[in-house]
Design a protein around this nucleic acid. Structure first.
Length: 176
DNA sequence: TAAGTGATCTCT
DNA sequence: GAGATCACTTAA
């Protein structure tokens, strides 16, 4: 393994959700499947932050599905939707504060459901820590992301959240 | 542009 | 229990 690459610790995720989202751009998502290791650069993320965020699953309170969002920073929140797609999120912030970052795209994979398919991410990872022992983790390999390369836009597919929350610029895109 | 697909949430 | 919804993708 490259000397410069380092695995992000749980602490990385225990910060303001928007900062974590932005800082995840340029980091590598790494997946171990048996003997094979897949990795790719994270290029698109969205923040879902707090109780009031009407676009977030958490805004109606804790349910069986969104329970991991209320957990500690640095665990996965994986859920199934549209009858066929898994979504990958990483939980941020303090325990009992519901927040997470949705990984929407990688350099060679666009679309949140396609990346979970390619990386074989499913509910088994739900609630597991973002670390090597889970077989899925995030590494900093020294990619420098300048402010000019970051585009900030409203989130996708959340029009139902009403004018205020649907327009929040909580989506970050890394354009290299 | 719309169908597919099924878990989950929100009422009865 | 029933009905609606859904942080999407693909095919046309």
């Amino acid at each position: 393994m490259d000397k410069k690459s380092k695995i992000l610790p749980a602490d990385f995720f225990n910060r303001d959700t928007l900062k974590v989202a932005r800082d995840l751009l340029g980091k590598f998502l790494v997946r171990k499947i048996g003997r094979r290791v897949l990795s790719d650069v994270i290029t698109e993320v969205e923040a879902y932050d707090g109780f009031d965020d009407r676009a977030s699953h958490s805004h109606r309170g804790m349910t069986k599905r969104n329970e991991p969002m209320f957990g500690e920073a640095g665990i996965f929140y994986v859920y199934f939707t549209y009858g066929m797609h898994f979504m990958l999120n990483i939980v941020t912030g303090e325990k009992d504060y519901p927040a997470a970052v949705l990984i929407r795209g990688l350099q060679h994979v666009s679309g949140p459901a396609r990346l979970t398919k390619k990386f074989r991410i499913d509910k088994k990872l739900n609630g597991l820590p973002v670390s090597k022992k889970s077989g899925l983790w995030v590494e900093d390999r020294g990619v420098v992301v300048s402010k000019k390369q970051i585009k900030q836009t409203p989130r996708i597919g959340v029009l139902y959240a009403g004018p205020v929350w649907a327009k929040k610029p909580y989506r970050f895109v890394f354009e290299s």
